[in-house]
Every structure is written in C-alpha cells, then in structure tokens.
Nucleic acid binder design. Structure first.
Length: 290
DNA sequence: CATACGTGGAA
DNA sequence: TTTCCAAGTAT
C-alpha cells in the first residue's frame, strides 16, 4: 500500500485553510462546539455561528447554566436543531461528571450526548493530540478512491476506522496532521463532484486514477425530498418559536396556514417528543428544563 | 441496520 | 427547476 501520509502532510502544511478551530490553543471546548456544528453543515456556514456561540458561552459550565431554550435559539438556522439540544446536554454532562473539563478519553467522549465515532475521535485528536483514526465523509471518499480504487465510498462502517487506522503514521503529531490533511484533501481537492485531480498531491499513487477513473457505482442512499416533508414542517414550527418575541406562543398561532394541518400537528408532537418544544396550557415554548 | 433529522449554496 | 451535498448521531 502506498504511503499517503508524507505527501499529504507536506501538502497540508502549505495549503490548509485558515479556520478558527485550527488556531493554536483553540481549546477543547471550542473544538467540541465546532465539531457539533460541523456535523452535516458546511464550514462556511459554521464559522460565524461558532464565534458567536463561544463569545456567549466560553466554557461548558456557562452553557450548562442556561436553559436549553437559549441553546436552541442561539443555534438559529444552522439546521438539525437537536444538535443544539444535545450540545447543551453534553455541556451539563461535562459540568456534572467531568468537573467542567471536556474529557480526553474516547470512551468518555462517546458517552456524552450527541457524540459519536467521528466527533469523539476528532476531539481526542485535534484538541488533545492523541493518536486515533478520525473518519468523516471526506476521509471515506479519499480512502475509497486512493486506496480502494472506487469512485465513491460505500455506506459508513466500522471498517472505515480500521482502514484509516492502518494508514496512520506512528507519531502522534504526524497522525493528527494526517487525519486533518485527509479531511482537507477530501473537502477541497478530492471532492464528491468534479474532483481536482490535477491539484492532488497523491495523484501518482491513487488507485482510482491508476484504474482510469472507473464509475464503480454509488451505494449511498439519496436524501428524501425536503419540499413538503415533515422535516420542513418541523423547521417552520421551530423557527416560529425561535423568532417569537414572547417565550410562550399559543399553539393555534404556530404556522396556522400550513397546507396540511395534520402534518403540522404531527410536527409539533414530534418536536415535543424530541424535547425541542414544551407544551403547557395550549401554548408552546422552547425547553426550559434539561 | 435503515431511517429520520434542517438549511442553504452550487451545479 | 431540480438535484446534490455538506467535518454525523440516535434509534
């Protein structure tokens, strides 16, 4: 297997984008918040929200001290607002179980609400410098192409962690930079559509290129249509609550003209079930209690 | 393990 | 206009 690490590390040191979480001593809490926001949301949309968030809540304890409603409001239009709720819960767990310090251990990180295989290792590696494979969608695409000779990755699997682990340099710092470099390559060069192979530092050892860029198919499942979906309806309901000048809103006043009343009611019920809304006396509000 | 879960920019 | 895609996680 070709050694991707050396050329990728060298490329990254010259070409990495300057992003807030890459500043020296950005801090584990900042890293954790950034990773929550980056789950399925593009970098460009995250940056301003991240800075506002950390300006308001510079530590886990400060966030944990405010009601979850404030987290959901501050999340604004970043999407997947359950992440705001989960980040708040994680902050409470960090305050109560870890003395307010973001844990370093992957197992401890995995035990926090909203943190999975990717985020746990991203924090351990990027905030603390430990040696673990960090696998996101960019990494999976780079490995699929450069190593497996496929045009797109398969479905996410534990095997991805094993594959990335096998590519990791022995040195902790090199391994951390290699993780970041692989993600960066996937984000800006080895992109899902129209990859810039002429600018790729590992083109000469890329299995997909060597095979003549075959279309090996795409196992990834397509996203459901958003227009007219329950997700869109939930988004409209929650936006109404976020933007309301009062904390309580009469339920009848929430998207009253939505084309499908049953869909609206279903959205409200599911938001309550998820803990993103509370109902009380015919009114709705963002969650006051953890 | 397949599915639900927001939002907006680019092709 | 429609489709694709974005530093995933929980159930």
């Amino acid at each position: 297997m070709p050694d991707l690490a050396a050329p990728l590390i060298a490329w990254y040191r010259r070409n990495a984008r300057e992003l807030p979480w890459r500043a020296p001593s950005f801090g584990a809490w900042g890293t954790l918040v950034s990773e929550f926001m980056l789950q399925q949301t593009p970098v460009a949309r995250v940056v301003p929200h991240l800075e506002a968030w950390l300006g308001r809540w510079p530590t886990p304890a400060t966030l944990a001290g405010d009601p979850p409603a404030e987290a959901v409001r501050q999340w604004a239009n970043l999407g997947y607002p359950r992440r705001a709720l989960w980040l708040h819960r994680a902050a409470v767990e960090i305050r109560d179980r870890h003395d307010g310090v973001v844990p370093r251990d992957v197992e401890a990180l995995l035990a926090l609400t909203g943190i999975g295989d990717y985020t746990a290792r991203a924090v351990a590696v990027f905030a603390y410098g430990d040696r673990h494979p960090v696998v996101d969608t960019n990494t999976r695409r780079v490995i699929a192409r450069a190593v497996a000779g496929r045009s797109q990755p398969g479905s996410p699997a534990k095997a991805d962690l094993v594959a990335m682990n096998a590519l990791l340099p022995a040195d902790d710092t090199d391994a951390a930079v290699f993780n970041a470099a692989t993600m960066e390559l996937g984000a800006v060069v080895c992109t899902a559509r129209a990859p810039k192979c002429e600018a790729c530092p590992v083109a000469s050892m890329c299995a997909w290129r060597a095979a003549g860029y075959p279309d090996t198919g795409d196992d990834r499942r397509r996203q459901a249509r958003y227009e007219g979906s329950d997700r869109q309806t939930r988004g409209a309901v929650l936006k109404t609550l976020r933007d309301a000048s009062t904390h309580d809103v009469p339920q009848d006043a929430v998207i009253p003209d939505w084309p499908d009343a049953a869909q609206r009611d279903r959205a409200i019920d599911s938001l309550i079930a998820d803990g993103l809304l509370e109902a009380s006396g015919g009114h709705l509000r963002l969650p006051r209690e953890v």
